[in-house]
Design a protein around this nucleic acid. Structure first.
Lengths: 131, 131
DNA sequence: TTACTTGCAAATCTTTTGCCGGTGT
DNA sequence: ACACCGGCAAAAGATTTGCAAGTAA
């Protein structure tokens, strides 16, 4: 990190600690508030700036969860599926969506990677429920 | 429409005319500005209120096009694919995404309808291009 | 006349930006 | 010391809400 001319400041470290501690992707606001019993973190604007910096470094990435704010997590190349009814954001195992990707490629020639924009659909439970 | 206790006001009519005139889904702001040589329409807040009303009636629906504002169109049950690189929102033919839907159902048991949240991927051209 | 509607202003919510003083290296 | 950074305040963009006046029915 230092080799890119960037500094390992305390605010930066707190953002990273929050992301390491989080089990699911979290909002910038939650990071600023200190996720999981963490000390009340730094300013929200700084959190956004640091998330952007870390994202440029490839350490962090964010997901757009339908309505609601963006969610941030350590970059692990994970793909997500979001239930448009109950709102659950589900990280899927690697390659689980390969058949979907393949079907889309065959149908329209598009290449999908559900890391930034999740696949939005209705989970099994919600599909079974009433509308 | 009247049978639901709603009125066919001029502002309401202008919103509908704008949607009929539009070839692609449009923003609330574009509707308020008068799409396609239409008279400068009504207030933006009223446009949003009317879009919501019409959506509850099942006449209108909206799509979330990645970043950027929501897009509105007459409800025709259309499904969309959005290119995350060039930003083009593409309405796909009916049933074109059936194989994708099927693959997703088989893989995770989710039921997808890409009408409200489009399938976000990279179109052929953009996938071929550099990153 | 009555209740739904509009226009305008102001509030919300998320994210970004400007500025200046603070701080890693 | 020098450039990067953090905090605070304010801006920006999309959408919602409050309210008094307007208008379909």
């Amino acid at each position: 990190m230092r080799r890119r001319g960037l500094r390992l400041s305390s605010a930066r470290r707190l953002v990273l600690e929050a992301l390491f501690a989080a089990e699911h992707p979290v909002t910038a606001d939650e990071i600023a508030g200190g996720v999981g019993g963490r000390v009340p973190c730094s300013d929200l604007a700084s959190v956004y700036r640091n998330l952007e910096t870390l994202e440029r470094l490839g350490v962090v990435h964010h997901v757009h969860a339908g309505h609601g704010p963006g969610l941030y997590a350590l970059a692990r190349g994970r793909e997500y599926v979001l239930c448009e009814r109950c709102g659950e954001l589900h990280a899927v195992p690697p390659h689980a969506l390969d058949p979907v990707r393949e079907a889309l490629r065959a149908a329209l020639g598009y290449e999908a990677r559900f890391t930034h924009f999740p696949l939005v659909a209705r989970c099994g439970d919600c599909a079974a429920s009433a509308d």
